[in-house]
Design a binder for these strands. Structure first.
Lengths: 338, 338
DNA sequence: TTGAAAGCGCTAACAC
DNA sequence: GTGTTAGCGCTTTCAA
């Protein structure tokens, strides 16, 4: 065990209460004593034990953020926003990675509950929120991040993914595209479903336009490349003239798949491409990728703000929905008017 | 406050000691009692308080990992390896992000010390290890990750970055390139210096070969793009025929910069490109990028193993050095023998 | 097989 | 201004 407050007190010739006061309310203590105590702290290399503080205070100073997949730059940006907002209230953000696995999501949430965090920010994988309701019942506030609001009893921050999907598809249609492919999955993830539904609605409004859904196993670069490679033949045969990928990781992979091999197709000549999230790699791709931007850091900041709101008052939980924004780049230039 | 072990005991009609035993050494307890206690736990929704456990045990079950920059896929892969190794001993990895800032690095390490973690894995930004020596003196073991071994009193895992730099430069030279540019920075980061030194050594061994160092402010995509754009003119004038970037984020940016604008140059026709780390985006770039691979997950696993070693015995700390490996892709095909 | 109780390090209420 | 002390939730020793 390290040095405790008791040893500091002995060394400085004061009581433990005084040491604690020096640390937490220095103005209550005579300047001279403050100095003596600080000297003792330095000599001994005292570092407070946060487990003891927390046990005493009944609450941790940390906020738990359960990310779907930490390898997706989208989430590290959300985390950064949350960190910034948390720092304002002298809180800390603990990041846990679910790696798109429901079991890990559950065990991460439980870990946070054992730690008695101030609250949990989570973009749940599963449709079943009963576990989160239990967590809340036990006194730990929960905020839904990047998630629709079927259950309006939780505060939530989200982006209108249906609108985002529409935005993407409408843009492709306006560019003269008619045979769309949607690439994304697994289809149990709410956000992915919404993006598809939005796109499908836009397509339904235009005569002769069609959309095919190609489900992927993960939202990863590799899956995108695989699908992109398979799409080459369809594009060459004219069966597909536009691809809407459910996120940018996929979109970048799809682009590589389309441009690769011995029979590459042209972007945007043969096929247009739109992604989602607007991560920095999207703008840096060979053919810069048009993408639906989400206000990533703002989502994180807002989630923390909603958490504090719900902690402070018993008022109705708020539901913040941001509007997505289309960032047009060269990957989706209009079809040649052939 | 949540439900405590006391309430569970009352509900089950047993003592708190028995509840604790049910949780931690169930075989010591009569089966019937075990059941009663579990029933009470379920009814009450009891979740143990880890602050109390930790205070009692004097140690946390967590290992702290201080990452230089969580937005670099390299570190999330190291983290994944560490998580896997930690899970074997039923430990957890806490991830903290320094964002290339020394102040944040310091405050992250202090946070971990307050939490009395089992140990800290860190790739320190600064050359000054005195703070880490203090941490160790107070009883928290420290392992240096991805870092040379000036101070051999800390266990360390690293990759031979000098050898990596040599590997990259020699490959470019063997491909007929003679006018190299090194892109990387800030130059106070040890790994970057080593990679440059290795490259410079290889260049010195070849007549008429030269290498120019272009220092960047960060190891980011944006900085790479900026430098890549500036390099276009030099390449066009024949002053540079190869670029070695200090990591893949930079390399990808450099590639975009070289291929962009109204006067793009050809890769590998006009200029060859080699990166470092072999992150997955490197293989997925327009022109797939040759890169020096580090065994990322293995680095994380080894760091955890070294931590447990140094905790268990007073023996000499070990220093593990992995050899880097060149992964050749099309961005560095030999120069046209013009 | 179980219960009672000490004590981990800290904060805050209270007494002086 | 400072000291004393109860008690946060838990594990573990000792006794029964």
């Amino acid at each position: 065990m390290g040095v405790s407050i008791k040893e500091v007190a002995a060394r400085a010739g004061v009581s433990v209460g005084t040491v604690s006061n020096v640390l937490n309310r220095p103005d209550m203590v005579k300047a001279e004593t403050v100095e003596k105590v600080h000297a003792a702290i330095d000599e001994l290399g005292y570092v407070p034990n946060s487990a003891a503080q927390q046990l005493r205070e009944g609450q941790s100073r940390s906020i738990g953020l359960v990310a779907l997949d930490i390898n997706n730059p989208f989430f590290t940006d959300v985390a950064r926003g949350a960190e910034r907002a948390a720092a304002l209230g002298r809180h800390t953000v603990l990041l846990a990675n679910s790696g798109e696995s429901i079991e890990r999501e559950i065990s991460n949430i439980e870990m946070f509950e054992r730690q008695r965090v101030r609250g949990v920010l989570v973009s749940p994988l599963s449709e079943d929120l009963s576990r989160l309701r239990d967590v809340r019942k036990r006194g730990i506030p929960v905020v839904l991040v990047d998630r629709g609001t079927e259950d309006t009893s939780f505060p939530s921050v989200a982006v209108d993914d249906v609108a985002g999907g529409e935005l993407a598809a409408r843009h492709l249609l306006e560019g003269g595209r008619r045979r769309l492919a949607f690439v994304g999955g697994p289809m149990r993830i709410r956000q992915i479903i919404d993006r598809y539904r939005g796109a499908a609605a836009a397509v339904a409004a235009v005569d002769e336009a069609t959309i095919t859904s190609i489900e992927t196993e993960a939202l990863s670069l590799d899956e995108g490349m695989r699908v992109g490679g398979e799409l080459r033949a369809l594009v060459a045969r004219g069966e597909i003239d536009a691809v809407f990928a459910a996120n940018d990781l996929l979109a970048i992979g799809v682009q590589q798949g389309l441009l690769g091999g011995d029979d590459p197709v042209a972007i945007p000549g043969d096929v247009a491409l739109v992604g989602y999230d607007d991560i920095s790699f999207a703008a840096a791709a060979v053919v810069p990728i048009t993408s639906v931007r989400q206000p990533r850091e703002l989502i994180g900041e807002t989630a923390v703000a909603l958490l504090e709101e719900v902690r402070e008052s018993e008022s109705e939980p708020r539901h913040v929905v941001f509007e997505p924004e289309l960032v047009v780049r060269s990957s989706s230039a209009p079809a040649p008017t052939a």
